[in-house]
Design a protein around this nucleic acid. Structure first.
Lengths: 344, 344
DNA sequence: AATCCATTTGACAACGCTGTCAGTTTGCTG
DNA sequence: CAGCAAACTGACAGCGTTGTCAAATGGATT
């Protein structure tokens, strides 16, 4: 059942190198106060014997599990999770940390218990909280109370001493809206995101600011509530399109809803972008693969997750957390789902 | 930095219940030979003190890490991974296991070292290998040599005493091809999948068997090599469509390539399904959200991953692994990307 | 009541590492 | 070359469990 290879322990290395186990420990953990000469001798023994420290013993003795948790909403709609996983894993791996996933289905009345159990049972040292987990006050409150360091990836105001990774959603949304206005659209529909996500509000704010700046009247009838999923986008867009004076462009708060909007347009025989321009947000994997390819906003999710993990690990290791307080930059990606307002 | 709550240890519970620590251990681990009376007393103490066994100590002493690894190909194209994660996590969680992810970028010349390190360093007890990891002989060979139990999710012939989860790819492909033939198509293109994936061969075999069975001539010019990604599907389909006598239907070995095929058709101004029927395989999340929604084959990935994890855990716990030797059933999902051959 | 097993319980030694602290060596200073 | 601080090194005690094996208990049988 278990590997047969006789386990090499710290004692074997110590003997081989002619030092005490403590010295081996020092070398392996890069602690100071070891003569260069000695260090090399130990390193050699480590390599020759292929010594791999026993993680369980380390944890038991040193109180460091080297495990980081990642709690996420288990909604299949949020395709950005893959990027989050990849980014975080890419940092944890070389830093000697393991990443433990914990999906949660929201809303979850027992969320507190679930997280508490995850934190205790899986003995995680720190936790990464991609949106919308970082937006939930009960979650961040619990972790704060449990004194478990965490890094939230969400556009909320950074709390003091807490790691918070954000990007300029508001500005990107502003830019995207501006693009549509410049293309001649003046009846621009907006599909809001899930109200519990910080990003939803930022994106809506950018839209409104752009309208105001360019003197386009804000029409509440052209704003619909969505929930970041395909279906809600399809329904919200459908309602707007069935209006007496439908919009000539629709801005959805994410790509899933934009895809829903395209679907709704197609069902009504509308040509996109000829008769209706549609833009999304996120630049998910399939945004460029549906027809027409979506005009959208690309966020550097992988980098954001990398930064979250890196800062968290720094913090766990007691380094001063030099948070980069400038938000990450989003980028408007113009594809074929948007076009200048046709004279018709 | 760390939770302040004073840790409750097995000693506290023992004292509280008036028994020895060993008895507490027995109760907590559901071992036999404890008087019912005693058991209840201990359980009570456990609950009152909210005792949670220390995983590191357990592992150090008992040699059981309760960690399962999941090694996967880090190709963003394989959206079925989310289902695999969810299925496996759903089983591991309640069984008290943690799931550790290990993405690998293929081809990886150092794959052996990477896996060896993952297995040792992360001290996993067993490993889940979704396709195409289970298809790589060096991977299964290494795990066999290291005596690490694994569960492969891939359509290969089950090795004796090894857990192998598969579904009837071949039959599903046969059914899908048959559907197109019944709709009047007799020039049906086929885009093969990545040659290193067992599924590719099964799917191609089903296609050929259906052609033969219905007396449709097999035309090598209508078969192109793809690699399961969007781009390769787009290119392969493009080549076929540019042929003097293009096919009236194209069957792609997965949905990403089918999406690529739709894209290629659109670029050439072809109406799908009016002038070209396209079908895929996998029923990924966005298959029903692109236009036209894809006719495809749905595999019960979540269930397959659940079964893989469950059987693996059974094996780790020494239970007889009653492998369900009947493959899982795929299901043809008919949507709007396929239509009867138009008389034109 | 004495005897004998089967069942139940407990004492104690691992498990492999890091923290503590004391002991040893080294390199300077005067 | 003694004297001393600073730089190294090592002995040993935990960390919280489980495995081993001996001891205690209880019930059935003489």
């Amino acid at each position: 059942m278990k590997p047969d290879r006789p386990k090499v322990t710290i004692f074997d290395v110590a003997e081989h190198a002619g030092v005490s186990i403590k010295t081996v420990s020092r070398v392996v953990n890069n602690e100071p106060n070891v003569r260069e000469n000695t260090r090399e001798r130990v390193m050699l023994a480590v390599r020759e014997l292929r010594y791999q420290p026993n993680a369980a013993a380390r944890e038991l003795s040193g109180k460091r599990s080297r495990i980081i948790g990642l709690i996420y909403e288990n909604a299949e709609e949020f395709s950005y999770l893959n990027d989050v996983f990849n980014g975080a894993l890419g940092i944890c791996e070389p830093a000697g940390y393991s990443l433990l996933l914990r999906p949660l289905t929201l809303p979850d009345p027992e969320i507190i218990d679930h997280i508490r159990q995850f934190a205790t049972n899986a003995r995680v040292e720190g936790i990464v909280l991609p949106a919308p987990m970082g937006d939930l006050p009960e979650v961040s409150g619990l972790l704060r109370e449990m004194r478990i360091p965490f890094a939230a990836i969400t556009p909320r105001e950074p709390a003091p001493d807490e790691i918070n990774i954000l990007c300029n959603d508001e500005a990107a949304s502003h830019a995207l809206t501006e693009l549509l206005i410049r293309q001649g659209h003046d009846a621009i529909g907006f599909i809001k995101g899930h109200p519990d996500h910080g990003a939803s509000h930022k994106r809506f704010a950018g839209y409104r600011r752009a309208l105001k700046r360019h003197g386009v009247a804000y029409a509440p009838r052209l704003v619909r509530q969505g929930y970041f999923d395909f279906e809600s986008g399809r329904i919200a867009a459908g309602r707007m399109l069935d209006l007496p004076n439908p919009p000539s462009a629709v801005l959805a708060s994410n790509d899933d809803m934009a895809a829903g909007a395209i679907f709704a347009a197609r069902k009504r025989g509308l040509n996109v972008p000829g008769e209706l321009s549609i833009a999304g947000f996120d630049d998910t994997r399939f945004s460029s693969r549906i027809w027409p390819p979506l005009t959208t906003v690309r966020q550097p999710i992988v980098q954001m997750a990398e930064t979250a993990a890196a800062l968290l690990i720094d913090k766990l290791n007691g380094h001063s957390t030099e948070a980069p307080e400038t938000p990450f930059e989003c980028e408007v990606v113009i594809r074929e789902s948007t076009a200048p307002l046709s004279p018709a």
